[in-house]
Design a protein around this nucleic acid. Structure first.
Lengths: 101, 101
DNA sequence: TTCTTATTTAGCTAAATAGCAAAATAATAA
DNA sequence: TTATTATTTTGCTATTTAGCTAAATAAGAA
C-alpha cells in the first residue's frame, strides 16, 4: 500500500498510467509522450512494476507494458473506505480476489 | 493534485488522516498515537494543511485539526475516473462544488 | 509580571528521489 | 559474424524529505 502511494506521488508516473489505461505500449511509445530521457522513463516503469500496477511482457526486442487496473484501483478504494461511504459500498460488493499477488 | 498525492505518500500522514476521520484532535492528542517527536507531527500536519485535506482551528492555546473529507476524496475519485467505471459514476453524480478553494 | 503548557519554526544530518549521460544487455537485421 | 535498435543498469549530481533537538511564539495560570 505504501509502495503504491509512493508510486503515485509523481506526476510523470500518474501520466504513464493514464497512457496505459488507453492501451498497452512499449517503453519507446511511452517515452514519445514525454520530454524525459528514456532511462528515466524506464526507471519510472520499474517503480510502477514493483508496486504491481503495471506488468511487462517481452515482445521480441520490445517490452510491452500494460496496466493492471485492479492493483491500482483496489488499494485506493480500500484507503478511501475510512473517508467515504461510497468507497465502503464499492469495497463491500467487490468480487473476491482472482489473481496471484 | 500533485500536492495531495505527495501528502498521501507517507504512512504517518495517512495514519493521521485516519485518526482525524474519527474526530477532530489537537496536535498533542494526535502525537500521543505516534512514537514521533511532536515537531515532526507538526510538520506532517502543515503538509496536510497545505494540501488542503485538513484545516486548523485555534482553541485557546491548543490547535484543533480536523479533516476536510471532500478535499481528500474528490481528487482521488477524479484520478480514479481514468481507471474505474465506478469512479466515473461517482464523479458524474457529484453535487456541485460548495466551498471556497 | 513570571511560569508553564502547546505548538511551530529553525537548523541540522541522513537518506531517498529524480534526472542525466554513458555503459551494459538483449534481440533483430545484415 | 558485425551492426543496429530497444531497453535497462550504472554512476553521478542536485534536490527533496524525514526525522531530531533546541529555540521561538502564543496562550493560559499564578
Amino acid at each position: 500500500m505504501d509502495e503504491i502511494f509512493k508510486a503515485l506521488a509523481s506526476e510523470p508516473r500518474r501520466r504513464i498510467l493514464r497512457h496505459l489505461a488507453i492501451e498497452p505500449m512499449t517503453v519507446g511509445e511511452i517515452a514519445d509522450n514525454f520530454e524525459m530521457a528514456m532511462p528515466s522513463i524506464s526507471r519510472h516503469l520499474s517503480i510502477l512494476r514493483a508496486a504491481g500496477v503495471v506488468r511487462e511482457q517481452k515482445r521480441g526486442q520490445y517490452v510491452l507494458y500494460m496496466l493492471v487496473a485492479d492493483r491500482l484501483t483496489a488499494p485506493l478504494y480500500d484507503f478511501l473506505t475510512d473517508f467515504s461511504e461510497q468507497a465502503r459500498e464499492i469495497v463491500e460488493t467487490r468480487p473476491r480476489r482472482r489473481g496471484r499477488d
